[in-house]
Nucleic acid binder design. Structure first.
Lengths: 186, 186
DNA sequence: TTGCCCATGTAACGTGTTACATGATTAA
DNA sequence: TTAATCATGTAACACGTTACATGGGCAA
C-alpha cells in the first residue's frame, strides 16, 4: 500500500469532494471561510503548489474555461475520491494539535506584570467570543446549502461543534483570568 | 526596536527562566513533559539549533561541566530575561492555533462510512480523557515545586486550565458523536 | 481612471521533522 | 553484558509563509 500524503493535500481534496469545479483562488477562499475555524488557512502559493502535486498524482484534474479570460478550474478525479475516502477512514495523525500562545505566556507569567498577564487572558476571552460570532455568521449559508445537498450536513455538525468549542474556550479563559486575579501569590 | 524571534525561541527561553542550568537533552524532556500539553514538543535537533541561535544573540550562555563526562549546560542571560519579558507582555501572534484533524475528517464525512466516522469521534473522546489524565499525573510535582518557588504557580494555573480544556474537548466530541448517531440524513 | 477584487504564479526564506551517527553512563 | 537512557550533533527533506510580480475585469 502506498504512503500517506501531507494532511494539506486531503484538506484540498476534501474541498473538491463536493463535485464543484473551483479555481485555486476559490479554493483559498473556501479554506479561509470554513477550514480556518478548526484547521487551516493556507497561503495562495501553497494552494497552487498542492494542486500541482495532486494533479501529478492524478488525484485532481483541471480544464481551462473558454472565454476572453481563461481560468484553470480544478475537479477531483475518481482516484482522488478513493484516496480521500481512504484517508478519512484510516489516515494517520494526532486527533488535535494545539498552539496556545496565551497559555504559553501565562506559563511564563513570572516574567510579566500581573495586570498585563490578566489583560492577555481577557483578550483571549474576547478573541474566542469573536470566533464563535464568526461561526454563527457563516452558519445560515451552510444550513441553506445542506438542505439541497445532504453532504453539507457534516459541515453543519462541525460548526455546531465549533460553537461548543469556542464557548468553552471563552469560559475557561475567563476562569483562568479570575484565578489569576484571586491568587495572592502572583 | 528590533524584531521578534520565532515563538519557539521564547518557549526555550521560558524553560530557562526559572534559573536552572539545563542541557539540551533536559530542555527537550521539560518541553515534552509540560509545554507539549498546550503548545509544543520539539525534536532534539531543533533544540540544539535554537540554542545555537539564542547563544549567538547572547540571550543564553553555556558552560561545560567539569568531570569525566563534560556536558554543555545552558542558562539564560540578563538580556535573555529582558527579551522574554518583552515578549510575554507585547509579543505578536494568534492567541490560539488549532489543527483539529478529527473535525476535518468529520467535515468530509460524506466520504466515509457513518460508523467509522462515529468511531473517530469516540476515539477523540478517549484521547482527550487521556490528555486530562496525563495532566492530573504531572500536577502533584508542579504543586510541590510551586510551594518552594512561587514562579511555578503559573504552571499550576495552566494545568488547571488544561483540565478544563480537555474535559470540554471530551464533552463536545461526545456530543458530536451523539449528533452524528442521531442525524437520520448521514 | 482609479482602485479593488480576481487569478496565477515564482523565489527566497524560515521552521520543523526524520533519518542517521556516535559514544558514554547506568540499571537490569 | 545487554539494553535503556543520557547527550550531542549533522544532513536531507518536507512544509509553510512572505514578498514579489503580473495582468484582466469591473465598479465607483
Amino acid at each position: 500500500m502506498h504512503d500517506w500524503l501531507p494532511t494539506t493535500s486531503y484538506a484540498l481534496l476534501g474541498l473538491l469532494s463536493f463535485d464543484e469545479e473551483l479555481t485555486g483562488y476559490q479554493l483559498q477562499r473556501r479554506a479561509a471561510a470554513s477550514l480556518r475555524h478548526f484547521f487551516w488557512s493556507p497561503a495562495m502559493s501553497q494552494i497552487y503548489a498542492e494542486l500541482r502535486r495532486l494533479e501529478q498524482l492524478d488525484l485532481v484534474a483541471h480544464r481551462t474555461t473558454p472565454g476572453t479570460r481563461p481560468r484553470r478550474v480544478f475537479r477531483i478525479t475518481d482516484a482522488g475520491r478513493q484516496e480521500l475516502r481512504r484517508w478519512v477512514a484510516d489516515g494517520p495523525g494526532e486527533p488535535l494539535v494545539l498552539k496556545h500562545l496565551t497559555c504559553l505566556r501565562i506559563f511564563y507569567g513570572h516574567m510579566a506584570d500581573p495586570g498585563a498577564l490578566r489583560a492577555r487572558a481577557i483578550e483571549h476571552v474576547r478573541w474566542s467570543e469573536q470566533a464563535a460570532a464568526d461561526l454563527r455568521r457563516v452558519r445560515p449559508g451552510v444550513q441553506e446549502r445542506s438542505r439541497s445537498d445532504p453532504r453539507w450536513r457534516y459541515a453543519d455538525h462541525v460548526i455546531e461543534w465549533g460553537l461548543d468549542y469556542y464557548a468553552a474556550e471563552a469560559a475557561s479563559a475567563a476562569r483562568l483570568a479570575d484565578r489569576l486575579a484571586a491568587d495572592p501569590d502572583v
